[in-house]
């Protein structure tokens, strides 16, 4: 178990996260958890697609969405996935400083995305598109907001792990934690790709 293997040597197969049984359990468990998350978002997407034209005389998606802003947010979030991969690469080479640097960049990009999203929401509320204004509003904020909440959670989570890694270094106990947080980060990225397509692009087509 993890308790016995704390030496800092690079793992044989290049994957520190699955070097212990605990790590294997965590990684598999997290993949399964992401399966559950997929169903969760699928339900929210279904609800949104069913209700997206119920604007009740309020502004429509076609009127509201600003593709330039959303494209920028998308670019930021997709880049953060890349930096997260670079962090994991550094982790498996036991390069603590490089890993911390890329994790820091990931968190900053996440924050940038969040700022853009909050700005966007404030703008929409001024236009009369709120959580309570129509079924379209409710389902839009439920879907995009749940994604935003996931991003927020991810930022707090990765920052926490950076603190722990700074204190403890890269160990077989830290590695699975860092790895699953990176899996989570990729997952919310993938969800965003679907939001970009099914909410924003589809909204522009009408």
């Amino acid at each position: 178990m993890a308790a016995h293997t704390h030496e800092n040597t690079a793992p044989q197969n290049g994957h520190l996260e699955t070097a212990s049984l605990d790590g294997k359990n965590k990684v598999l468990g997290f993949w399964l958890f992401l399966g559950a998350e997929t169903v969760l978002f699928a339900c929210l997407f279904g609800t949104y697609l069913a209700l997206r034209n119920q604007t009740m005389g309020g502004p429509t998606g076609e009127h509201l969405f600003d593709l330039k802003l959303v494209a920028l947010a998308t670019a930021i979030l997709l880049t953060s996935s890349l930096t997260s991969v670079l962090a994991m690469h550094a982790m498996n080479q036991l390069k603590l400083k490089t890993m911390q640097f890329w994790l820091g960049v990931t968190v900053l990009l996440g924050l940038g995305f969040l700022v853009l999203e909050i700005y966007e929401f404030i703008h929409y509320v001024h236009e009369g598109h709120t959580f309570m204004s129509s079924a379209f509003g409710s389902s839009f904020y439920a879907l995009v907001g749940t994604h935003g909440a996931h991003v927020t959670f991810g930022i707090v989570w990765i920052s926490t792990l950076m603190l722990q890694a700074a204190k403890r270094g890269i160990t077989t106990e830290m590695a699975p934690k860092l790895f699953v947080s990176s899996l989570y980060w990729h997952f919310i990225d993938v969800v965003w790709v679907f939001i970009f397509t099914l909410v924003y692009l589809l909204g522009k087509v009408g």
Partner: peptide
């Protein structure tokens, strides 16, 4: 279970926070 999670979440939004997922008069279903 995630489907139940979402269903309960939406019902909570409707009841506590004034959302309109299930309210026909506001376009819900």
């Amino acid at each position: 279970f995630p489907a139940l999670t979402v269903a309960l979440l939406l019902l909570m939004f409707d009841r506590l926070f004034g959302a309109n997922f299930f309210d026909y008069t506001m376009g819900g279903s």
